[in-house]
Each structure stands twice: as structure tokens, then as C-alpha cells.
Computed example of a mutant assay.
Amino acid sequence: MKKNIVSTMTVLAVSALVSVSSASANEKLSVAATPVPAAEILEFMTSQMAEQGVDLQVHVFTDFIQPNQQVVEKQIDMNCFQHKPHLDSFNENESQNLVPQGYTYILPLGAYSTKIKSLDELKKGASVAIPSDTTNGARALLLLQKEGLIKLKDPEDLFATSRDVVDNPKRLKFVELEAATIPRVMSDVDLAVINTNYALDANLNPKRDSLFMEDTDSPYANLCASREDNKDREAIKKLNEVWQSPETLKFIEEKYQGTVIPVKPK
């Protein structure tokens, strides 16, 4: 009996060692992401990545600046938080060469208000908060143009600024703020154009709460990005595959109820 107990304990000990050894042998992949929905989705994906032999480590940031800087400085392997125009703008302004990896989802930009319930109530001289970064600011202006509130010098300019507004019949006053802060100042402005990741983080649902939002054919599909020197890592390829797995797609559909729209690989 004693011999059997010793044998059983030996088997369990060996199994535990094998388990620990296997876990420690997993390749580590660090990813920077904004809280909602990117980090939430990535956290859901960790178990699938572990099955693929990858220890996925998610680092959460609340701004649009640090995720790229951390990758450039080799503090983090890659990021998943931005769309292609934002990545292009960063590369150009910072003389960097971060490269796109897999495309993930579309987060339709929406306009919200605590003061009005329809655009008909928007008065002349109303204040409109828009993101201060170049690409999301332009995106907000394009959305306002689509709703007939303004006209831009080039109606398709993905890098337009408020200086490019050539027609503003309601004499709207643009308040340019860091994108993450806009939900917190909604009560101080008449209209706030908010990125969906920050809207969801503030318990705002673009389908339910916005006065208007982008169409699902928006060109602003989010993506993951990495440095040139690790773009072909097997762990990154596995991450791209897991983004498109049936389990991940089901999680996105059930959790976000159509406010986060997965995109097919490009």
C-alpha cells in the first residue's frame, strides 16, 4: 500500500513538473492594447494562444500614443489598437516603420450628446468635441460632413483638419481634445464625436446611444502592428489566426452585440 502511494505521488510530481516545464517553454508575445474592446478580446484569446504554444501577455494603455512608442522602443512586441491611417500618420511623423499585421475589427465612430436628442435641436454656434490627433480628428470631420453639418475642401481627405472646413452653416465651434478624454466632457459640449473603444469604456453603446455613426463600410478597420524586425514571427502569425477563430468571433458577437464588427483577413 505504501509502495503504491509513493508511486502515485511520484507520477503526480512528474506530471506537475512537465506541466510547469511546458508552460515555461511557451514563447512569450507581449501586446499593447487599449482597454475596450482590444484588451478584452486579447484576454479572451490567451487560452487559445496557450494551446498554440504562446504565452500571450496583454499590456493595457488608455491613450493612442504609448502603444506605438512602446513597440518602437522594444518594450513590447506589437500592438492592437489602431487603424491604418493612424499607423501611417505615426510612421510619417515619427520617422518609424511599424508594419501592419492582421486586420481585426471596425469600431464605427459615433456622435453623442447629453443636451440634444436629434440633429434638428443642434443650435448655431454649438460646441463639438472631436479628437485632437490628426487621423481621428479627420475621421470625425468626415462623419460630420456625411451628416451635412459641414463641408471640407477635399471631401475625401483622410487627414483633414478644422482649417479645411469650407462651409459651416451652423457655425459649429470645434473643441479638439485627446480622444480618451472626450467621454468625460460630454456635459460641457453640445455634441461629442467619440471613438467606439472609448464609448464602450464609458458604457455608451453606439448603436443605442449615438445620434449618428459611421457605416459598417468604414475604411477605418483596426489592425495589429509590429516592428519590421519581428514581423514574421510565428507567434504573431498564430495571433492573427486566433483573431479569426470561431471561438473569438463568437465572443465578439455575443459580448458587443454588433458594436464591434469583425473584418476578414486582408
Score class of each variant (00 low, 15 high):
Q70A: 05
Y220M: 04
N168L: 00
A235E: 05
K237Y: 09
E51N: 13
C80R: 10
D120R: 09
T135V: 11
Q57C: 09
L29M: 01
Q52T: 02
N195T: 14
Q257F: 07
V54Q: 07
R163V: 12
Q48H: 05
A199T: 01
F64R: 14
L191A: 07
R139N: 03
V54T: 03
M1S: 14
V242F: 00
D167C: 12
F81E: 08
K170N: 10
V99C: 03
A199E: 02
K250I: 03
D232M: 06
K74A: 15
S118F: 02
A50F: 01
D133R: 07
H86T: 13
V260G: 01
M186S: 11
E254C: 08
F174Y: 14
K117M: 04
L56I: 02
A129F: 04
V193C: 06
Q70Y: 01
D63F: 06
F251S: 01
A180D: 11
N195W: 15
D157I: 06
D88A: 11
P85N: 07
T196E: 02
Y198G: 00
T181W: 09
S226L: 04
V54S: 03
K153I: 07
K153T: 10
A225Y: 15
A235K: 07
H59V: 15
P35L: 01
A50L: 03
N68S: 14
A138P: 15
N195G: 15
H86P: 12
F251A: 02
D164A: 11
T10Y: 05
A140Y: 07
L204K: 00
Q48A: 04
P219C: 00
K146R: 13
L177G: 09
G125N: 01
A140S: 11
T135M: 14
A111H: 02
S132M: 13
F44S: 01
N205A: 05
I150F: 07
L29Q: 02
K250R: 09
N205R: 03
G110W: 08
N222T: 06
L144T: 02
G110R: 05
D215C: 09
V72F: 04
S47D: 04
N4C: 09
L249E: 06
C224N: 09
D63Y: 05
V36D: 01
S47Q: 04
A235S: 12
E40H: 03
L200Y: 01
T104C: 12
Q48K: 02
I236Y: 03
I261P: 00
D55N: 08
Y103F: 15
M45A: 00
S30L: 02
L158F: 14
I65Q: 14
D188A: 15
L152F: 09
E43L: 10
M78G: 09
G53Q: 01
A50R: 07
V31L: 05
F61V: 13
T216F: 08
K28E: 11
E156Q: 14
F159R: 12
L143G: 01
V72E: 13
I116S: 04
N26L: 13
